[in-house]
Simulated scan of single mutants.
Amino acid sequence: MPFWIVLFICVVVAYFAVTEGAKKYFDMKLQVLFNLGLYQDCIDLLDRKLARIVMSTYKQYYLRFTIYEAADMDAYADRMLDHLLEMPCSDKQRRQLAVRAFNFYIKTGDRKRAASMLEEMRPIVSKGILADSQLTYDIVFCRRHDKIDEMEAMLDTSDLGLRGKLYLLLSYQYESSGNKGEALRYRNLEKQLRDAHRPPTIKQNTH
């Protein structure tokens, strides 16, 4: 075999080895930083040239969306989500994105886009996810309020994300039923829970 072919093969193998190693490094580093709430550090890591080279554009935008959403930077997260929804991706990625987008639009009170995502989810997600999403939509936008007792019985959960969601859904239900005092109490509980776990703010000049 000619020397130049051997050299070419060695270069290709080395390139893929370095690329895969870099992918694993960035994945592990981002996971650690995210779990620590160091969201600005996550963005700084994604801004590195090597990260842009080894990660797909879809993955970069998805990670940025996740980070901005966790940091309560909804305008930035919304912009990332707009890009993501226009990108080609696998069926599995689209299912995951549709659910994430629905929950984000529920959070931001965007009824039209939440309804659009809910319709997209109907044929592609599990019955359990669809039922939970439909219930959430009905409580937030259609004034449904028949799940108060059931949800209050679930408040002792150790899952902070679930507890925060329950606080919000209970506040909507009490408001719909005319009990503004309880609605305000649960909204304040959700805010207190969120503020207690609020991460450092991401610099506003990020993209």
Rank of each mutant, 00 (worst) to 15 (best):
E120S: 11
R143H: 11
S133H: 05
R100K: 10
S176K: 02
L155F: 00
D44N: 14
F8Q: 02
D91G: 08
Y137Q: 06
R143G: 12
T206K: 11
Q134E: 14
V11K: 01
M154I: 01
M1A: 15
R94N: 06
E119V: 15
M28S: 15
D146W: 03
G181I: 03
Q93A: 14
A75L: 14
P2R: 08
I9R: 03
V6A: 10
R163C: 08
L85N: 03
E119K: 15
D41L: 09
L155E: 09
A75W: 08
G178W: 03
T57G: 15
E20Q: 09
D41W: 05
L169R: 09
V54M: 11
K24I: 01
L168N: 13
H83Q: 12
R163I: 05
A101N: 01
M151V: 12
D41P: 11
D149P: 04
Y62S: 12
K23T: 00
E175P: 01
M55F: 10
E119D: 15
G37E: 11
K29M: 13
L50G: 14
K59M: 12
G37Y: 07
S90G: 08
I124T: 12
Q134H: 04
L193D: 07
T19W: 00
F3N: 07
L168G: 10
D47I: 06
L63D: 04
A196V: 01
E182A: 13
A114H: 04
K203H: 14
M80Y: 00
L169V: 05
R113G: 02
L97Y: 03
F3R: 04
N205Q: 06
P88S: 03
R95M: 06
D156S: 13
K23R: 02
P199S: 06
T136A: 15
F104S: 09
F102P: 10
E182I: 00
R143A: 15
L50D: 13
G21N: 13
D72Q: 12
D132S: 10
L85E: 03
I53H: 07
F34K: 06
E182L: 08
D41A: 13
L85D: 02
L166W: 02
L193Y: 04
S90V: 01
R111V: 03
R52A: 11
G161M: 07
R187N: 15
T201A: 14
A77M: 04
L162G: 00
Y105L: 05
T136R: 15
K107E: 09
L97M: 07
V11R: 00
M1H: 14
I148R: 03
R194K: 09
S126D: 10
F102I: 05
Y167N: 05
F34M: 02
M73K: 15
K147T: 04
D72P: 07
P200K: 11
A131Y: 12
E150L: 10
A131D: 15
V12T: 14
I106L: 04
L36G: 10
L130C: 14
I9V: 14
